Simulated assay, not measured.
Amino acid sequence: MKTKIYRFTTLLLISFIVFSCASEEKTVPLSAENKILSFSITKGDVSKQFDVLEGSVTGKVASDFELNDIKISVSIPKGATISPDPSIIKSITGPFNLTVTAENGDKKAYEISIKRELGVDNFILESSINTQYFVTSPKIDGETGMITKRLPEFIDLKNLSIDLKYSKYATITPDPKTVKDYSSPVSFTVKSESGVEKVYQVKVEHMNINKFESCTEANATKWFGGDDRTDAPDTLPYDRNVGTGQAIVLSKDLVPSVFSIHLKEGFYYFKANTEYNKPVVIKLIIRDENQKTIGYTTTTVSGQFKGGFIPFDLKGLNLFLEAGKTYSFYWYLVDGTSLGITASSSGNTKSGSGFCFSTGYSGQSKVSKNNTLEDSSVWYKHDWHFNIQLEGKE
């Protein structure tokens, strides 16, 4: 009987303890924490942390910190939730609200007001002039606000299209797209996003200063034209045509009017050693630094020509050669292969610097190889600098 009473007492005690523990667990209060602990925005590799105030998060980012394609990171207490989910917000266009709900259901709203600082830049960054013949970039002087360019006389300054690229968020007046007459200077005002203004003046003039370059020093000559020899090594008679070329680099922009080449003597048959004494035609090809043909022309050489400079008239080509860029001139005897006559290109084997000492070229075509001197692949760099003259206007 005592044993039964003991077991009953023990069972009652255990039940009391379990009941007490269960009661204690049920009475643990839920958290009332519903604060934003930290707030940051990341764009690319840049992150910015913002101070969290009572019921708001405010602040500014730099003018170049775009508030789109961003990642918002918000830290809240354990057990709390936030709505809407900050991770789905990719851009900020104005104030918005975030609500933090505590574990016990208490809610707290935060107004998020993040702004980008107004830009202060008011610069013209790039400028380009678009003509039917070429596109070129004027010089921009950020100190004086002057934008200047000299253009060929065949360009109408009263009907000109000039593009101006300016600072982001800035505005410009007048709108460059509405301005066509640049026969006199035109002023543009660039206003930053914050309201600071800067005045630029576009001044375009015609190129009217005469320019002449001459490379006359010669100590060597190179084969030019066809070949009538029957005993030449690796060459059949009336099979090849040899051309000459010369690259130039200008210190200032130039509109070329005349380009001249130099041959030591008139054309003759090398094998027979007799003069040709008839007119011939020489073709000139002009290519830019990418070896794109930008112009070509021909000139007729008199049968009485006995040597000297041979001019090519370039005025009708409307060429505009820019300073600092490389232009290559190639010339060859038209029908040189079938004519079989030759002359000598004058050149200089010395080294030097300046206009006369850019890369020389030579080219050779062959009927047996089914190519011509119109093919850029038959031209190669030559160690000499060939005698040329160039006239035009700067």
Score class of each variant (00 low, 15 high):
T101H: 01
F39T: 00
K325I: 08
S368H: 08
K90E: 09
G308C: 08
Q201A: 09
N241R: 04
A62N: 15
Y327L: 03
P29Y: 07
L98Y: 00
N130Y: 10
N387P: 10
Q304W: 06
Y276G: 06
I209G: 11
T216Q: 13
N97Y: 03
K278A: 11
F224S: 09
L67F: 00
G307N: 01
E117S: 10
S362L: 12
A218N: 13
A22L: 15
V190S: 06
V199D: 04
D253P: 06
T235Y: 11
G308A: 06
N277D: 13
S302Q: 09
I89D: 02
I88L: 10
Y133R: 10
T99C: 01
L151A: 05
D141F: 08
F267D: 05
S344K: 15
P86H: 00
S137F: 12
S23I: 11
S251E: 15
K4G: 15
I89Y: 01
I70L: 06
Y330S: 01
C356V: 09
G266F: 05
K115Q: 04
L160D: 08
T359A: 13
P176W: 00
A170V: 02
G142E: 14
V186S: 10
R150N: 13
A343S: 15
K158L: 04
W379H: 04
K315N: 14
D375K: 04
K139I: 12
D45S: 15
S260T: 02
N371V: 05
K292D: 10
G79I: 05
K35S: 10
A80V: 01
K35M: 06
Y276E: 07
N104H: 07
F39M: 00
D253M: 01
V74Y: 02
T372R: 04
G360F: 06
A218F: 12
N318L: 12
V204F: 11
G145A: 01
Y6W: 09
S376D: 14
G105R: 03
D51Q: 08
K203D: 15
D141Y: 07
V281C: 04
S376K: 12
K60G: 07
S368C: 07
I76A: 02
F212G: 09
F357Q: 06
E394H: 06
G392R: 02
T349A: 13
F188M: 09
F96G: 03
I140Y: 05
N273P: 05
Y238N: 05
E143A: 14
P237D: 02
T342G: 08
G360M: 07
D335R: 07
V18T: 12
G225N: 02
G392N: 07
K315L: 12
P77K: 00
W331D: 13
E265C: 11
L164W: 06
K139R: 12
T131N: 04
W331N: 14
P237H: 03
K115R: 09
L254C: 07
D288L: 01
K198E: 05
T99V: 14
V258W: 00
Y182K: 04
F224Y: 12
